[in-house]
Simulated assay, not measured.
Amino acid sequence: MTIYSLYIYDRHCTCVYYHDWHRTRRPKAAVEGGILPGVSHVVAPSQSPDTQGRPGSPYGSPRNTLSSNTGIVIAVNEMTPQTPSPLLQTPPPPPALSSTGLPFDEEAKLVYGVVLSLRNMIKKLAGREEQFVNYRTSSYKMHLYETTSGYKFVMLSDPGTDSLRFILRQIYIGPFLEYVVRNPLISMDSKERGVDNEYFRASVDRLIRGLSVFP
């Protein structure tokens, strides 16, 4: 059993965050303008170096963060070399994966379309109080957690995995509230940028890698 990927959609049906782990075939980079900046460096349409010519951080801008202990805004002087924090130390990037042949922006729309269609079908067949939480095919299982504010957390896993809805809720009440909702530097529902916060991405990665279903 294993976990493939995580998508987060805002109330405007836009993918604002993407993270993958055990995908054997990664989607192609999105077309220019197809996704918001900061969703994921893996599927960004272009990779531009920073002002000093260095590759961008795999977790986005370090300026968009809050200290989890003090709540103080962390500002980074772009002209001063910075030593990576132990919190943000990450394993080396995985080897290059073959592509699915589908741009990420199209894949994200398909995933959201499946969620929306199944949720509407369930409400029509079983009543408005019934909730869509997951469904399974022969190759994957989709898990959904929706917040009262309209954010949808969608995870794809191995078809034999038990329900991971509680993990999605844990991501929401933990890292998402801590580093995104309570972060004054992130404009919620701005329609201009994804969840570009390296502390949030590092926390999600650490949480998923610590699960028993993550080999």
Rank of each mutant, 00 (worst) to 15 (best):
K109L: 11
L110Y: 07
L110K: 13
V111R: 08
V111W: 02
V111F: 02
Y112D: 03
Y112C: 03
G113T: 09
G113K: 01
G113L: 05
G113D: 07
G113N: 11
G113I: 07
V114Q: 15
V115K: 01
V115W: 04
V115E: 06
V115A: 04
V115H: 05
V115Y: 11
L116R: 15
L116D: 14
S117E: 14
S117I: 02
S117C: 09
S117F: 06
L118D: 15
L118Y: 10
L118H: 15
R119I: 13
R119T: 14
R119N: 05
R119V: 10
R119M: 10
R119P: 13
R119A: 12
M121W: 04
M121A: 03
I122S: 05
K123W: 06
K123C: 06
K123F: 02
L125N: 09
L125T: 13
A126M: 09
A126Y: 10
E129G: 13
E129I: 13
E130C: 09
E130N: 03
Q131W: 11
Q131E: 06
F132G: 04
F132S: 06
Y135A: 08
Y135I: 14
R136S: 15
T137N: 01
T137Y: 02
S139R: 14
S139G: 03
S139T: 03
Y140E: 10
Y140K: 15
Y140C: 12
K141C: 03
K141L: 03
M142V: 11
M142T: 15
M142A: 10
H143F: 12
H143I: 02
L144I: 09
L144E: 01
L144N: 04
L144K: 01
E146L: 01
E146C: 11
T147Q: 01
T148M: 14
T148H: 14
T148S: 09
S149N: 12
S149G: 07
S149L: 03
S149C: 13
G150D: 05
G150N: 13
G150R: 00
G150M: 07
Y151P: 00
K152P: 07
K152I: 07
K152C: 06
F153I: 00
V154A: 05
V154W: 11
M155P: 08
M155S: 09
M155Q: 08
L156W: 15
S157E: 10
D158C: 03
G160L: 13
T161E: 13
T161L: 01
T161R: 03
D162I: 06
D162Q: 08
S163V: 12
S163H: 04
S163T: 09
S163G: 10
L164Q: 13
R165A: 14
R165V: 09
F166M: 01
I167P: 06
L168H: 01
R169M: 04
R169A: 05
Y172C: 04
I173P: 00
I173E: 09
I173S: 12
I173F: 05
G174V: 01
G174R: 01
P175I: 00
P175A: 06
